[in-house]
Amino acid sequence: MTTPRPQVPVIVLAGYLGAGKTTLLNHVLRQPGARVGVVINDFGDINVDAAWVSGQIDEPAAISGGCLCCISDTNELDTALERLAAPRLRLDAIIVEASGLADPATLARMVRFSGAEGTRLGGVAEVVDAVHHAHTAPSGHDAATRWGAASLVVVNKLDLLSPGDRAAYVGAIADTVHARNPRALVVGTSAGSIDPALLYGVSEAADDPAQLPLRELLLEEARPHPHVHADAVSVRAPAGADPGRVIDLLERPPAGVYRMKGTVVVRSGTRWRSYAVNLVGSSIHVASAPRAERSELAAIGLHLDVDTVRHRLDHAVAPGAGAPPAVGLRRLQRYRRLSR
């Protein structure tokens, strides 16, 4: 039996010119732990933005010639993603930094339906300039599509506002975003200093010393934390998760949870099957996974009620009594078909 190829999450990093996308990207790349590939989109024959990316990039791939979502031939993007998703690189995530004029919803569709094998859409992060947001904020149809596509909205440059105004300002932007997309996570920061865990999760392959497992990256207490720090909860359980409970958790995650990732082992007839499950915002992705001996699940978010989240995760992956309900298994497999 052929082992399924691991799928590398591709995160679209969007935002208007000057919002701080490259600053945020540099901050993330400087953090220890994960192996990240980068695709930088720019105008003209020279990728000006690429010169400003000073962090550690395991495998860069630059795309020139215009806004990605305006390219009639998407082969260039597919080629870059295919190159970065090669198993030999062992990348944990790929970040596509879009030009300021790119439409994130269109870009997300291009990534989701890319011909690149071994990739999946890992979410859309929109960077907002706190100082000039009032002049660049989308409105009408543009607002509905832009905020609707976002799984993470980063309100950047808060240090340029008076301390007493920052919380109210972020709250006002969050209200605007949530009116169109209630599941989007909105955070405020300065100099793009977010916890990389909000942007991507990394491999669960704990037995491979060349990889950093998700729980190790998130729970290592000695690592210096950036200004916006994510909470994380992880659980393990013997094989036999109830697929219906797993889908219930993914469809209705605990308050504050922005991402979930892990492997669940369920019974299908007389056989055990392993599935890799991922949640980013409201986007659920399920894929077949290499055979595992146990279920593992991790949740990431801000200001989590850790006890409540742990209880929900434990309940989802705890072995059920007897064979799992056929309805739950069909729901899980439906998400797997939709995720292809």
Rank of each mutant, 00 (worst) to 15 (best):
158 L>Y: 01
120 R>F: 09
317 V>R: 07
123 G>Q: 02
254 P>S: 08
114 S>R: 06
282 S>Q: 11
240 G>V: 12
152 L>T: 00
194 I>R: 00
120 R>N: 08
46 I>P: 03
175 D>W: 03
292 A>F: 08
31 Q>K: 09
211 Q>N: 12
263 T>E: 13
234 S>Q: 11
133 H>A: 14
114 S>N: 09
183 R>H: 10
73 D>T: 15
155 V>D: 00
197 A>Y: 02
221 E>Q: 15
195 D>V: 03
331 R>Q: 11
63 I>F: 03
167 A>K: 00
22 T>I: 15
50 A>M: 03
32 P>R: 08
310 R>W: 09
181 N>L: 01
165 D>V: 00
90 R>P: 07
243 P>M: 03
152 L>I: 00
95 I>R: 00
233 V>E: 12
283 S>C: 09
116 A>E: 11
249 L>D: 10
247 I>D: 03
191 A>V: 13
72 S>P: 06
58 D>A: 04
281 G>Y: 01
335 Y>Q: 14
40 I>Q: 14
13 L>F: 03
5 R>V: 15
42 D>Q: 04
334 R>C: 07
240 G>H: 05
22 T>H: 10
82 E>M: 12
116 A>P: 12
312 R>L: 10
213 P>T: 03
255 A>P: 06
54 S>V: 15
243 P>K: 03
273 R>V: 13
192 G>F: 06
51 A>L: 14
60 P>W: 05
108 A>G: 09
228 V>P: 01
257 V>C: 04
239 A>V: 13
246 V>P: 05
315 H>E: 09
25 L>E: 06
194 I>K: 01
81 L>R: 08
340 R>N: 07
156 N>I: 02
126 E>W: 09
55 G>Y: 06
144 A>S: 12
104 P>A: 11
267 R>A: 07
6 P>N: 06
270 T>H: 11
114 S>Y: 08
304 L>S: 08
242 D>V: 11
198 L>E: 01
2 T>A: 14
239 A>M: 05
219 L>Y: 07
239 A>D: 04
94 I>H: 06
107 L>N: 04
223 R>Y: 07
238 P>Q: 05
163 P>L: 00
190 S>W: 03
76 E>D: 14
279 L>M: 11
330 R>D: 15
131 V>K: 12
101 L>Q: 13
238 P>F: 05
86 A>K: 14
249 L>K: 04
25 L>S: 02
4 P>A: 08
110 M>D: 14
161 L>H: 01
62 A>I: 14
150 A>W: 02
231 D>G: 06
220 E>P: 03
76 E>N: 07
115 G>Q: 14
232 A>S: 13
38 V>Y: 02
202 V>L: 15
111 V>F: 03
224 P>N: 02
47 N>A: 06
127 V>I: 12
314 D>N: 10
146 R>L: 13
226 P>I: 00
195 D>T: 04
315 H>L: 04
173 I>G: 01
281 G>V: 00
242 D>P: 10
102 A>V: 10
95 I>W: 00
196 P>F: 01
234 S>M: 09
299 A>V: 11
188 G>E: 00
226 P>R: 03
17 L>F: 05
176 T>H: 08
205 A>S: 13
